[in-house]
Nucleic acid binder design. Structure first.
Length: 242
DNA sequence: TTGATAATAT
DNA sequence: AATATTATCA
């Protein structure tokens, strides 16, 4: 742990974005009417995800190209930030499926994260596999820490992941059974949300984010602004119990 | 850096 | 044709 990890927790509540700042990706990326079906117009019932702990993923990188009311589908998807919680779900899904069936599409479906695409998972899976390979080499005690693998290290790697692969699928590993979202059923356990901050104008820093999909209430999270070159990244994740 | 995208393979 | 894996980009 570093200082930053302690610092952000300090300014955690201060920088805490309000639920209104969270834009439901399900509304922008999916069909408008479908988004409405997913959307909660009246935040009355909220605390039904206590065990799951609503996870908010903040995206960044919003193209400065004028129009802000671009068609949802033509919208360029912001960078996804893989938080430990999201990663944990990823690992759980992979563990549940077994290395064999752990392919991007299936993983994505099992994760049941709204807004998460197959590409997101594929990209991450690629990195994760590399991480696993790296760990096999250093098997024994020491773990590789490249600041890159921090996210991977946050979640324990199931034994069979490092296995030479000979077993078909002996997974009595049932972390959870998310129940694939087959039809339009607004029952995601998690969701990815995005929003755009206007750093240049700290005064009118109000966003016209519509409404939360259906889990904006207990949005506990911390927001950190990271500036890399000219790229502003705002990451937000819940203070989960993980 | 980390995640997206392109290229390629199955 | 669709999805998976690898490589490269930003």
């Amino acid at each position: 742990m570093r200082e930053e990890d302690s610092n952000w927790f300090s300014s955690w509540e201060e920088e805490l974005p309000s639920p209104e700042e969270l834009m439901p990706l399900s509304q922008t990326l999916i069909s408008p009417h479908l988004a409405i079906a997913f959307d909660i117009t009246n935040p009355s019932h909220h605390q039904q995800y206590s065990s799951q702990q609503v996870q908010e993923q903040q995206f960044s990188h919003q193209p400065p190209s004028g129009t802000e009311e671009e068609p949802a589908r033509t919208q360029k998807r912001p960078r996804l930030v893989w938080t430990p919680q999201l990663h944990k779900r990823f690992v759980d899904a992979v563990a549940h499926l077994g290395i064999k069936n752990a392919v991007p599409k299936t993983i994505m479906q099992l994760m049941s994260v709204d807004g998460l695409t197959r590409e997101n998972v594929a990209s991450h899976l690629q990195k994760y596999r590399l991480y696993l390979k790296r760990m096999q080499g250093l098997a024994g005690g020491a773990a590789a820490d490249s600041a890159t693998d921090h996210i991977f290290a946050s979640s324990p790697v199931p034994p069979h992941f490092l296995h030479p692969a000979g077993r078909p699928t002996s997974d009595h590993y049932l972390p959870f059974v998310p129940a694939l979202q087959q039809h339009r059923h607004p029952h995601q356990h998690m969701a990815v949300a995005g929003g755009h901050r206007h750093f240049g104008s700290p005064r009118n820093a109000h966003f016209e984010l519509p409404i939360l999909s259906r889990m904006g209430a207990p949005v506990t999270g911390y927001a950190e602004d990271v500036e890399s070159g000219g790229r502003k990244v705002l990451t937000l994740f819940p203070a989960g119990d993980d």
